[in-house]
Amino acid sequence: MTAGDRTGDGVPSDHGPPGRVRLRTESTPRSATPPSINGGGPEPTRAVVFDIRDMAVYYGQNCALADTSLKVYRNLVTAVIGPSGCGKSTFIRSLNRMNDAILGFRLEGRVLYHGHDLYGSGANRVEVRRRIGMVFQKPNPFPKSIYDNVAWAPRNLGMKHRLDERVEQALRQAALWEEVKDRLRDSALGLSGGQQQRLCIARAIAIEPDVLLLDEPASALDPVATASIEDLMHDLKHRFTIVIVTHNMQQAARVADRTAFFSLDITGPARFGTLIEYGDTETIFRGASDSRTRDYVAGRFG
């Protein structure tokens, strides 16, 4: 396969309309594996976490995103880049059903998560979000103490055993422990923006999800805070599968193993976001096959 393949890795995009949930196991035979990111050599088959097929998202009559198929692999950082309005946020929010509450939201195509249809009749929305955590663009700590921010979700889930230890671990993994260990009972709203965002990451990983979705997590932060969050991602990917939306190309180049470039489809009368190119980060940035990708990463638009 070619690294810059339109649909990610050669999976034909000729699936019919979404029908019944078809269970797929992780060992679905694959004709091609994603190319190595570690400097050549065949990559061992990685498990597929998300298998997105012909995804299209509508808000009422408006099509926000269409014609998008890609696979997200376990324990990699997958970046989603593109100009504003190209459906990046819509895309990532559709991966843990955060869009469900939006009036008129409709998703076509299929999103398979470990082979299970995320939008199938058997899929429980709360269960989905318990497995697929999300950190948002704007830091949104709860108006509670630092400790309670992290401990809240584990308590709900019944993970009350050694809760203090769990909170400490989560804060350590979010590289926040040293800064807050003496004021765990203070309000989280007193933290700086960067600390708040790391608290939100700690909050998300405290319940040990399978996937972390990061929707422009550093866009509201200063460069120092941004750097600390990027460092964090290198550590976290060993334990989680990470999908990150960013409008910052350098950030994608620094943190991501694989990169998906989204843009507006302006060929037809209706404008909607769509996946243009998906592949190994190096390929996207150094040798993209689509001219739009090359223009974008070269800073010629967006």
């Binding site: 269970l23 196991t25 992780e26 976490v49 998560y113 470990h114 082979g115 299970h116 995320l118 199938g120 058997g122 899929a123 429980n124 709360v126 269960e127 989905v128 318990r130 497995r131 584990p154 709900n156 889930l157 019944g158 993970m159 009350k160 055993h161 050694r162 230890e165 769990r166 671990q169 989560a170 405290a206 319940i207 040990e208 399978d210 334990r239």
Partner: peptide, 27 residues
Amino acid sequence: SRLVLGESGRFDPTAPLTPSGNLRRRT
């Protein structure tokens, strides 16, 4: 090996997306 924080709340990510753990009671 991924679950270093404790025993409770464990789930198999490849299991069907039906309620796991205490979710049934919470629902």
